[in-house]
């Protein structure tokens, strides 16, 4: 076998008759330099994954689901591609894409929830809540209605990964009668609420969206022009990418932002 870059060789046979039994380390470690062409990926027997157990598969499903929730929530950010790096075929913005594609957020959306301000350093308070001023009621004015902010709550996806094929959409579980039985009380309550609020929430969401968009516009003025760095903030944040939306999606994917 070829010795590549000091790996894989280990000891070559010792000096047969060393009488003290010592391995003569320094010499043994010499590796013959290999002047032949080396493969980038030398062949080796690739291990085989022991099949995932049902328990593991549930853990994976929950993990993916949880990550998905964060991704469609207000904190996940995707930076646009650098100019010139867009794929002209894939990145074409079509009407349907704009309408149905999942929104991408360039900056986290912070003003949708209440915070425990004292847990944050003072220099961030204004960032968290623009209406914040010490001593005043911390609430926002939405559509002229003074309303307390609420946390975003999502329901739990309790689908089990189905046997052989990993038919992806876990929420398909609701087709199953048995699964339906299992739907938690909370989930039911929440779904009621969701229906209740449909009309209202759409209105609010859109209103918020508009405000938000304006805010973002202003923000861009603040960006420093830093051409020297390997990263150009302006290019990243430059809005030109059609399917990026700064709006509020109310946690994404719910009934809130598509009709």
């Amino acid at each position: 076998m070829a010795f590549r870059g000091g790996r894989g060789g280990g000891f070559r046979g010792g000096r047969g008759g060393s009488s003290n039994g010592g391995p003569l380390m320094p010499r043994e470690f010499d590796v013959k330099p290999d002047f032949g062409p080396t493969e980038q990926f030398p062949d080796y027997t690739i291990p085989f994954q022991d099949p995932l157990t049902p328990t593991e598969r549930i853990h994976i499903a929950r993990f993916r689901d949880h990550r998905e929730k964060i991704h469609s929530g207000p904190l996940y950010t995707v930076l646009g591609k650098r100019k010139g790096l867009e794929n002209p075929f894939e990145d074409v913005v079509t009407y349907s894409a704009k309408k149905y594609h999942r929104q991408k957020r360039k900056v986290p959306k912070l003003d949708s929830r209440p915070y425990v301000l004292e847990f944050f350093p003072v220099e961030l308070w204004e960032t968290m809540d623009s209406s914040y001023a010490p001593g005043t009621d911390r609430s926002v004015v939405i559509n002229g209605k003074r309303e307390k902010k609420r946390l975003l709550i999502s329901s739990l996806n309790t689908a089990l990964p189905n046997g052989g094929l990993h038919n992806g959409d876990q929420s398909d579980g609701s087709d199953d009668d048995e699964e339906k039985e299992k739907k938690s009380v909370l989930a039911k309550l929440m779904s009621h609420k969701d229906e209740d609020d449909d009309g209202l929430s759409d209105g609010n969401a859109e209103a918020e969206e508009d405000d938000e968009a304006e805010d973002e516009g202003e923000e861009e003025d603040d960006y420093q022009d830093d051409e020297d760095g390997d990263y150009n903030a302006e290019q990243y944040f430059d809005d030109g990418d059609g399917d990026v939306d700064y709006g509020d999606d109310d946690g994404g994917g719910g009934g809130a932002w598509y009709d």
């Binding site: 030398p42 027997t45 291990p47 085989f48």
Partner: peptide
């Protein structure tokens, strides 16, 4: 269940 050694990296020559 082996983690590291059953991943391609576990015994990767490079």
């Amino acid at each position: 269940k082996q983690g590291f050694t059953e991943a391609p990296c576990g015994r990767c020559p490079v």
